[in-house]
Design a protein around this nucleic acid. Sequence first.
DNA 1: ATTTAAGGGCTTTTT
DNA 2: GCCCTTAAAT
Length: 737
Amino acid sequence: MSAPMATGVPEYLVRLNAEQREAVETLDGPLLVLAGAGTGKTRVLTTRFAHLLMTGRAFPGQVLAVTFTNKAAREMRERVSAILGRPAEGLWLGTFHALCARMLRRHAELVGLTSGFTILDTDDQLRLLKLVMEAGGIDLKRWPAPGLMAQIQRWKDRGVSPNRITPAEDTDYASGKARPLYAAYQARLRDLNCADFGDLMLHMVDILRDHPEVLADWHRRFRYILVDEYQDTNLVQYMWLRLLAQGHKNICCVGDDDQSIYSWRGAEIENILRFEKDFPNARVVRLESNYRSTRPILGAASGLIAHNAGRLGKTLRAGRNDADGEKVRVVSLWDSEEEARMVGERIEVAQRSGHALSEIAILVRAGFQTRAFEERLITLGVPYRVIGGLKFYERAEIRDAMAYLRVLAQPADDLAFERIVNTPKRGLGDTAMRKMHEIARAEGIPLSSAAARLAQGGITGRARAALSELLHGFARWREALPRDGHVVVAATLLDESGYTEMWKQDKSPEAPGRLENLKEFLRALGEFETLTGFLEHVALVMENDENAADDRLSLMTLHAAKGLEFDTVFLPGWEEGLFPHSRAMEEGGEKGVEEERRLAYVGLTRARKHAIVSCAANRRIYGNWSSSIPSRFLDELPLEHIEREGSAGMARNRMVEMPSVFTGAGGLLARRPKVIEAGAWEVQARPVRADAIGVGQRVFHQKFGYGRVTGVEDDKLDIAFEKAGTKRVLDRFVEKA
DNA sequence: ATTTAAGGGCTTTTT
DNA sequence: GCCCTTAAAT
């Protein structure tokens, strides 16, 4: 513990405002910190953590700190270290899933697993469930597996294992067979020594519920519990927290009911609404001083969210000295293309006046909306990045490589074996696989053993040779493992199995990138002592490098934007049906609309200085043009904080004045937005692309599709397009594919 | 056993 | 309008 400051108050506390300080210094008993957007939530959480250590209230290993994302966990670790002035070691700090996995490794045998269990990805989960359903004689046409998977996940989110399903929790899926199928699926997971994501939580809760001595052990360990984003916890996470908090009752949950946007993933906003009932004598501290946004942005966001019922109630106050600023712009446009043009032009104007692109974001409701903006940004030559998309470990090549290593580590891992047995193609098709399954089922042995049996005889020459080569390979690699180490063996394995070669032969544009990813995979493997440690890391923690080293604009969904902030934020597509989304309204009714409204609130509060909301009167959805009316959320923004502009009339009841969609493209193109600052249209000199395109690069062109660069001359490219033939185009019209 | 055709569906996705 | 999953064709 470092010496107290001369004043008696440590420096890290002095930097806090009164409410933040109360949240940090209230150490005993349950505490709920209601932290509005931009009120210093992370600072409170990390300072509180450090304070617990600095005051000697707890050793690092006695604090359990839970986040939802790896990113949040990493950030907290870094900031706690910064306050402590040394790396924070031995912490129980991580995501719900990572922490549960860590705990479950110690108690795996209590749920019929061994500590080396494998964590399945969603792909494996579904394949396994399909096998279980087929074995159960279910007609997969009539009862698609994803439906049952969703149901099982819902059960797991609610902490319901097969034996705990009450009639109220049951479903009529597949004429009431859901429950036995769930049980069979769990049994198969156990046999394969696997756990899916939901199991990590579910098993731990079951263990803590059923084994008081285990629970008591964890109570002895954890004296303080810190929880981030409490509004996003689901029931099983709540149960887990509650069980662990029973011991010392020192649980501090930080969250914001107004930012609960994941109910469709099982998050229960009731968890935070109920906190004071669940934890008697709980203190509640509200953080309401916002240090992020201007007064008009806060006013607009507050006015909007005030339309929700059943809130815990907070009022965001502007905490900045320079909080005065521009009103929120509400721009109405003729169609989605004009909307994209408007956003693009404003970005160019901002860019020319020195605004960093990395401080601008376009936040959309649904993924398909990004396309129009991407097209626009490409033609304007504005660098951007789309946040979201596939995670590192969700890429096919990484999953394949993982599967190889899983078979190496656990020959009985049927799912992994099945994935790689014919990847690369070894001439093992349906017939060979069926035979393998038959043997495995008949003998009650793993697939790989069945394959060995099959290689002795039972299939034809070519397939047989290929199969026995693979099996001999695994025997060899496994033998080499203790001698050469996992990194070397992994590299040889991917090489000798023909897997790397498969991608080298592949002519598709993604192939080089995939080989890169495999290199990255091997490099990351080198950072781990053991194979199993690495497999867990990849399953739970590994993520994309979206580090914004270069100056690019961000394009992402509103969901992906939670927790981020930008100087300027564009919020397009505020139209009934899209935002609030019709599905959300159909499925959730008024509750659904409220969650959409929270999403709008999240979007607005991402902006520090400028927020530009827009709606289009016409939008192409699923290929068809359809007209839409402005979102009800626009009417809910307080008039004094917004400024309306636009070419396409705003009032929701004046829609009749809108020209028909069918007036044709001429009228549509002739119409120019009146919303653009003067001069914005006279854009001549485009910046040269930062990412130079070379010969051989595969590229994408909006009009001509995919092609390969055959020549480069200044900013002009000769491209052999797959469909459109050879053309010469300006480099700014293509993107790397 | 791989290639091609037809069909359905389509919001968000921290782990 | 597009993309992905499953069905028949060679």
